[in-house]
Design a protein around this nucleic acid. Structure first.
Length: 501
RNA sequence: GGCACCGUGGCCGAGAGGCUAGGCAGAGGUCUGCAAAACCUCGUACACCAGUUCGAAUCUGGUCGGUGCCUCCA
């Protein structure tokens, strides 16, 4: 056959508002597109959630045996500076501020983003296209929309005619928006922000697909309509189409992108190609910090680097990348998730418990004791919850059950024969490491051979002291090591140690 | 103002008409020279007010609170 494992994966499709059985359009390969970051600033907590969520989906699909092409773009074109009232390009603005070339800004924050993703153990996507590298594809799509009679040109800019499109299509099918409401709500805006370009649009619901550059815009490209840059929703349509083809299987992103971004993607694709672009739309929920949304006005816009170092007034300590990853996965991706110091500290301990059990498991061997733990049922439960719209929260709860069994095994309170034990180890590792992507903290594992040798020696000396009942020396060694953040734990058959905090 | 979603024990978070996850914190115990780790025991929580039902945290309506979107940016 095609090597796909039997599964019962269901995912929640925002388009139908139902959980649906996952059946890819092509039998053994899956196309998945996730809206990538705008690289005008350091990656923050808001980036960690979607990319971790879809990383787990990517990993799971690969585990199931699919050949997955995962495309995640880099947005490096044509965006406003957030909260700045000027209609200046986000990246161009930053370039002026920092006296840098736009591409230098882009490169710098792309690197920063990649660093953060690597630390969070998010696998790189199969293709990571940049918007600036796909201007011709976007121009082509604008032309197709014009050819279809669903766009119009005003002073060098091209707009998508939403009202006309809505005559033959369901604009709002994804977001549940009603076109009349959108127009009405724009009308009732008490404090109309004199938005650049608003007067060029025939209707407030229309959106730009090509924008003429103002004199101060640094980033601009030639087009049949003007020197300018592509519209705000076009890049994802053009690049997903190029690398995955319409229709493709999964399009993911944060819930904040549902409208207008993804709604517009559907409209553009329909207009240009006559095809609905995506089978399953998936949206992760947002993150709050101490119960408040993240934002500059709240003074809680913490970037990931600050999280990892603890360098922010709201953070009581540093939280490692794996703590952040683990914490994200303890909630279901469609729930909001609140980050608070207490919760994160708890997450770190919980994460360590799971990792300790994994280490322990590798050292265990088969025994004759009666085993009344139902390994097969546990395994089935684990995959059932994963299949139920990727419920990592429940999977982690089940992994704790597994961790407990590993500890009981170690204490000889239960037993497993050889084949059972091997099965247990394999499943635990697969779930924890391969699918959830949780691994030992960087620098905390025993990859440091010098340290390992030194610790062997120190612990041997301490062992001698203990044999001589020289508790003062034994405790002194352990206390000093604790100060150095090395934890020593005595067991029946020697002492274990681990680095950490 | 409109459209969605949410409100669970000290904290975080699953679940979902009766069988009432899990982690962290807390209390007691076992083990240990002491500690740590681990194991055992202990919490009957679901914003509020009505209603449906034999039975609701889970369904319905309302109230209050939170979040996202409704706008140029993504």
């Amino acid at each position: 056959m095609n090597g796909i494992k039997k599964h019962n994966l269901h995912i929640y499709n925002s388009l139908t508002r139902k959980k649906e059985r996952f059946e890819p359009l092509r039998s053994s390969s899956v196309g998945m597109y996730v809206c990538g970051p705008t690289v005008y600033g350091d990656p923050h907590l808001g980036h960690a959630r979607p990319y971790t969520t879809f990383d787990v989906l990517f990993r799971y699909l690969v585990y199931l045996g699919y050949k997955v092409r995962y495309v995640r773009n880099i947005t490096d074109v044509g965006h406003l500076v957030n909260d700045a009232d000027e209609g200046a390009d986000k990246i161009a603005q930053k370039a002026k501020l920092e006296q840098l070339e736009p591409m230098e800004v882009v490169q710098r924050y792309t690197n920063s983003f990649h660093d953060a993703m690597r630390m969070l153990n998010n696998l790189p996507p199969s293709i990571e296209p940049s918007a600036a590298g796909h201007i011709p594809e976007q121009i082509k799509m604008v032309q197709e929309i014009l050819d279809a009679g669903l766009g119009y040109i005003t002073q060098g800019s091209v707009y998508f005619d939403v009202s006309k499109y809505a005559q033959g299509h369901d604009y709002g099918q994804l977001s549940g928006k009603v076109l009349e409401d959108l127009i009405a709500s724009a009308d009732r805006d008490e404090t109309p922000r004199s938005l650049e370009g608003q007067d060029e649009k025939r209707s407030p619901a229309d959106f730009a697909i090509w924008k003429k550059a103002l004199p101060e815009h640094i980033m601009r490209w030639e087009s049949p309509w003007s020197d300018g840059f592509p519209g705000w929703h076009l890049e994802c349509s053009a690049m997903s189409r190029k690398y995955l083809g319409f229709p493709f299987d999964i399009h993911g992103g944060g819930m904040d992108l549902l409208f207008p971004h993804h709604e517009c993607e559907i409209a553009q694709a329909q207009a240009a190609t006559g095809t609905s672009p995506v089978k399953y739309w998936m949206h992760n929920n947002m993150i709050t910090l101490d119960g408040k949304k993240m934002g500059k006005s709240y003074g809680n816009g913490i970037n990931l680097h600050q999280f990892f170092t603890g360098d922010h007034p709201l953070l009581e300590q540093a939280y490692s990348p794996m703590t952040v990853r683990f914490y994200i996965l303890t909630a279901h991706y469609r729930s909001t998730l609140d980050f608070g110091n207490e919760a994160l500290k708890a997450a770190h301990k919980a994460y360590q418990r799971l990792m300790n059990a994994q280490d322990l498991l590798q050292t265990l061997s088969a025994s004759k004791n009666q085993n009344n733990w139902d390994l097969a049922a546990w395994e089935k439960n684990c995959f059932d919850v994963l299949d139920d719209d990727l419920n990592t929260a429940q999977l982690i709860a089940l992994l704790f059950e597994g961790a407990k069994q590993a500890n009981l095994l170690k204490e000889g309170k239960i037993g497993m024969d050889h084949s059972q034990l091997e099965r247990f180890k394999a499943i635990y590792n697969t779930l924890l490491t391969d699918i959830l992507g949780l691994r030992a903290e960087e620098g905390s594992h025993e990859s440091d051979h010098v340290l390992e040798g030194v610790m062997d020696l120190v612990l041997a000396l301490r062992h001698d002291a203990k044999l001589a009942k020289d508790w003062a020396t034994a405790d002194k060694i352990r206390n000093r090591l604790t100060e150095m953040r090395i934890k020593v734990m005595d067991g029946k058959d020697g002492s274990r140690w681990e680095k950490g905090d």
